[in-house]
Amino acid sequence: MAKDRSNGEDYTGPLRRLLMGVLLLCLLAIFLVWRIDSPRVERFRAQVTDALVPNLEWAMAPVTGFVNLIRDFQSYQRLSEQNRELRSELRQMQAWKEAALQLEQENARLLDLNNVRLDPRLTYITGVVLADSGSPFRQSVLLNVGARDGIMDGWATMDGIGLVGRISGVGKNTARVILLTDTTSRIPATVQPSGQVAMISGDNTAAPPVEFLENPDLVRPGDRVISSGDGGVFPAGLLIGQIAADPSGRLRVRLAADYERLEFLRVLRHHGAEPIADPSQIVKPVQVNEASDVSEAPDG
């Protein structure tokens, strides 16, 4: 019994208590530093992730593949039902394809007529999704491309169809993409065809709400939402999704990107919109030597 008591004293001994205090203070300091100087700690977090997660890739890839295989297998059970659905969808698609081909030709002709030059610098790097955020409270994925590949904070990320998110946190070999559904995501957008400007602000649901609409009456469910490029951080004209109204009447965006299966993502290289810095200059007639004296005299 005496030994038993001394065992307990180990845990409350002065040295142990001191160590405990130091440990608690360290953790508190880390949290407070994060709150005060978040970018620096987030960079540290990116480095830790960068050092650890790529090492797990060899194990992650097969496990993920295996689980997806099981999920696919479950969907085989309703194969005939799906087949019928697909057939009817295919019929609809063929009609659309015809329309799309005609529109594409028309579009090409119009672009040619107007001499439009598409932004040539919007090239992309494709990355593979390594890991997700691992928490139900945050929505982000980790890509296997990083500073080594020239990735920079703030660049847009798409899957084949629509916008997925933006880069936030770059390590040497990895980069984190904050998805549009994350609570910290805010993307300036334009609703077509009315041209209303709005903010797409994630709230941890599958369809983020549309906020700061000037005139909601002009926006209808089914309207296309594209990024507006306001603020110069994001390239303009990337497809985000379609407007949908939830049961309470609030406008939300049904995202175009397939969030169910994020496997390969494109990171768009974007070097910011070029600012127009110098004020416009007065257009003067071409100065000819003998005319210059005459034209400048009245100006004083």
Binding site: V67, L130, P136
Partner: peptide, 17 residues
Amino acid sequence: MFLHLLPLDTVPRTWAG
């Protein structure tokens, strides 16, 4: 943590493990 990090659900969930 490894199990948490597996990129299996990238859609926001209404429940939490």
